[in-house]
Amino acid sequence: MDPLLLTAGEPVGPAVVLPVFEGPLDLLLHLVREEKVSIWDIPIAKICDQYHEILRRMEQLDLEIAGEYLVYAAWLLLIKSRMLLPRHGGDEGDPRQELVVRLAEYERVKVAAAELAGLAELRRGVEAVRFALPAAPAEVELDLEDVDVVALAGALREVLERHVREHPAALHLDPIRFSVREKIVELFELVSRQRSFPLLSHLLTRPDRLESVTLLVAALELVRLKTAKAHQRRPFAEIYLTLTGEPLRVEGLTDA
């Protein structure tokens, strides 16, 4: 429930519509005023009955709100019981003191709230006047001497960065110049000419990076097809390819 919405008229019980109270303090103040009793002589039992009545009607409502009433009811009973006990000396103070102070404070709050409501009521229909301006303010004329070089450099950098952000480099595709299938055949022939073929030196001496890469993939393919074996004695040393004797079958291979 939006606390800012007026809740007057909200059905609290089936038949009876109670005035809406802003909690136990508000109800207490209302009852005191209605009974026309001094706030020093609050009929506590009667008030607790009223609280109980409210709670009974609110059973299906907010536990938090119910809790607020219960706290007050308990407090009132505490005050009542203290009043009934004989007092020892005068240093204890009146058990009703805090309640009286709080009620008086709350009454002032209610009066101030009413004053504010009155002020706001006088101002219904008072709306700010603002002549419409063009959407964007006119370009401010700048004196070149006032321009800070650092700020200018910053602005330029920002423009460039934005340009790059908004114009990402196009994806560049090179035509396929070497095919794995070709390289497999080529490598197979090279390896068959000697007992063991130094793959690494062959790759490193290719003039074209892409060719080296394709050759490496081709070598891996040969191994996968069990047509060749690869040996390396230790890490980073030369890799030797030797044929296994399996025939090369390139039918199932793609060109990629």
Binding site: L4, A112, L116
Partner: peptide
């Protein structure tokens, strides 16, 4: 503005700056 809003505003206006527990104490809710 509802009664609750007006009371709360009144408390804040006259006692500012003020915390929520203090507002709760003064309003009893």
């Amino acid at each position: 503005l509802s009664q609750a809003a007006l009371e709360t505003l009144a408390i804040v206006a006259y006692r500012q700056p003020i915390t929520l527990p203090e507002v709760n104490y003064l309003r009893g809710v």
